[in-house]
């Protein structure tokens, strides 16, 4: 890996060794690394601060990223350290050896209901912690942001990040940038319409898309066409019931339908999801 001397100095000071590149994003890249003291593997996200919006810089670089270090949950990717140097942000975090849920589903297709139940319960637990303990919304729940550790436990990563990058404060709407395109399938009707929305309920919606995807091996709505997607989302609950595989239990379909409620007011909360019959 080509690495400049300042970056190398940061890594040396913190006792990390950089290994191969894991992924490339629009505003940075993720490397695999090793903590030299105990040979533990870590993921190192390197973000280019000059490519970030002013709002992102103000909100996260200074304060809120520090709060993420305090976040401790079995099903949330732990952040060990955050360093700002050489106009870059270095985020040292837990390494998950089995990749993302996207990779898993692309390889193996839909999950059995029992596996989906285990993973979904873990994710609900993580989100409940983020919503109630940290009083934050994740804002970018998607298969790419669910990682699998060496024991195949799911871990939620990247919260509070991507959405903020694409939020335009002056226009009060989301920017149609490349970063947002990949997240389209997980958008609730309010986001599709670029209307003000409750971020916690938007997280809940994305969890519904996730659960549907786990059980069906596909996305519920036609996200490539936003107006068609909105039609499908608001044809409720007829549409969502009609596209679910007929092998899926009534309890699972009931939970999916309660989550993918286009009306924010009546859409269930994470706490209510955790008490649903299917998760008992």
């Amino acid at each position: 890996i080509e690495i400049d001397s300042k970056t190398q100095a940061v890594l040396d000071r913190k006792n990390y060794r950089l290994l191969e590149k894991l992924s490339q994003g629009s505003f940075g890249e993720v490397y695999k690394g090793e903590f030299k003291i105990d040979h533990r593997l870590v993921a190192i996200k390197i973000l280019d601060i000059s490519k970030m919006s002013m709002k992102f810089k103000e909100r996260y670089v200074a304060r809120e990223l520090k709060a993420l270090i305090e976040c401790r949950h079995l099903n949330v990717v732990q952040i060990y350290d955050i360093i700002r140097s050489n106009n870059r942000l270095y985020i040292f975090m837990e390494y998950c050896s089995n990749g993302t849920l996207t990779m898993f589903i692309k390889k193996f297709g839909a999950c059995s209901e029992s596996l989906a139940r285990i993973w979904f319960r873990q994710l609900v637990d993580a989100l409940l912690y983020i919503h109630t303990e940290l009083k934050m919304a994740h804002r970018d729940i998607k298969f790419d942001n669910v990682l699998l550790d060496e024991k195949f436990n799911v871990k939620l990563t990247d919260f509070g990040f991507a959405k903020e990058l694409a939020w335009n404060d002056n226009k009060q709407q989301l920017e149609l940038t490349a970063t947002i395109c990949g997240t389209e399938p997980f958008m609730c009707p309010q986001l599709v319409q670029r209307r003000p929305y409750n971020p916690m309920k938007a997280d809940v919606w994305a969890m519904g898309v996730l659960l549907f995807g786990l059980l069906n091996g596909r996305f519920p709505f036609n996200w490539a066409d936003p107006s068609l997607m909105l039609k499908e989302q608001t044809n409720y609950p007829k549409f969502i019931r009609s596209v679910s595989k007929n092998t899926i239990s009534e309890e699972a379909n009931d939970l999916i339908a309660k989550i993918l409620d286009p009306d924010e007011q009546t859409r269930i909360t994470v706490l209510e999801i955790s008490k649903h019959l299917w998760l008992k």
Partner: peptide, 12 residues
């Protein structure tokens, strides 16, 4: 069938 057709739509 319609179900098979649907199952091939919107891949992850």
């Amino acid at each position: 069938t319609l179900k098979t057709l649907i199952s091939k739509m919107n891949p992850i």
